[in-house]
């Protein structure tokens, strides 16, 4: 039996028959749950909460796409998982830690195990690509030696170069990131996340600010890397084709609640578009 209990969908406006998350192919034992969110509530002072009792579980090694209209709560949900924004209600278990009860030091340790890729890459513009990737090592080490590539130990610089190599950008290591294209910047952000040696990766609309070709290229690379490294991935996207092509499972949010949850292959675009209605 799977550890994950699929949520009942009987009263949901969009019903997906095969709603149970897909177990890992060939798995003989139940996959562990890396993320388990129950009843998450968050509002920003408005009458209507942005998250209104979200339940979601993500299995180890699974790739889950979050879809939903603007304001549906996708970004808020991802940020609440790492307490970049504090949720007001509900519980979050991430990598077997109760996120909402963690002390600051333990929270930092947990964050270190989770890579987060932002929509606008959030790199430090005046620094080189290599320095930005070296920052990922701060997940494991503290101290000034991990602030700039010029100060970093040789092993860290080599690992950062390897991460840049994985995203196909070893040649721009010394370039300032504000001179890079949007696609290159997002790849550097992915390299920074890899530098953390994460067990779980979250991505908030990672290709939304890129043109379609760059978006396709980055999303393909991102998805390949996650599968190759065996990482659990939770990403939000407005591109339904990306959700279908790169996720095992699609979760749709509407008005702060999960309104759709099912295997990506079982979805059709017309059905998925209803979540934006």
């Amino acid at each position: 039996m799977l550890a994950l209990q699929p949520r009942p969908l009987a009263a949901d406006p969009i019903r997906v028959e095969a709603a149970a998350p897909t177990p890992l192919a060939g798995a003989a034992v139940p996959a562990a749950v890396d993320l388990d969110i129950r009843g998450m509530v968050k509002s920003f002072g408005e009458a209507k909460p942005v998250l209104n009792g979200v339940d979601l579980a993500v299995l180890r090694g699974q790739s889950v796409a979050l879809i939903g209209a603007n304001g549906a709560g996708k970004s808020t949900l991802l940020r609440c998982c790492l307490r970049l924004i504090e949720a007001e209600g509900g519980s979050v278990r991430l990598l077997e830690r109760d996120v909402r009860r963690l002390a600051p030091r333990d929270l930092r340790r947990l964050r270190a195990r989770v890579g987060f890729v932002f929509q606008r890459h959030n790199l430090v513009p005046r620094l080189s690509a290599l320095s930005n990737v070296v920052h990922g090592a701060q997940a494991r080490h503290a101290g000034a030696r991990y602030w700039l590539h010029g100060l970093a130990p040789k092993a860290v610089r080599e690992e950062a170069m390897h991460c840049l190599d994985l995203v196909g950008l070893p040649h721009i290591a010394r370039q300032r990131v504000d001179s890079l294209s949007g696609g290159q910047s997002q790849r550097v952000a992915i390299a920074r996340a890899l530098m953390q040696r994460p067990q779980f990766v979250m991505a908030d609309e990672p290709v939304a600010s890129l043109d379609p070709n760059a978006g396709e290229e980055v999303m393909g690379l991102f998805s390949d890397l996650m599968r190759r490294e065996g990482l659990t991935l939770l990403f939000s996207s407005h591109d339904l084709r990306h959700a279908v092509d790169y996720a095992d499972r699609i979760v749709g949010l509407r008005a702060g609640r999960v309104e759709l949850d099912g295997p990506a292959r079982a979805q059709d675009f017309a059905g998925l578009r209803e979540i934006y209605g």
């Binding site: 790492l82 970049l84 930092r108 340790r109 947990l110 964050r111 270190a112 195990r113 989770v114 890579g115 987060f116 932002f118 959030n122 790199l123 430090v124 513009p125 920052h135 990922g136 701060q138 997940a139 952000a189 920074r192 996340a193 953390q196």
Partner: peptide, 10 residues
């Protein structure tokens, strides 16, 4: 960038 550094546990 500050949010990114916070998110990675810096």
């Amino acid at each position: 960038p500050q949010e990114a550094l916070t998110a990675l546990g810096a």
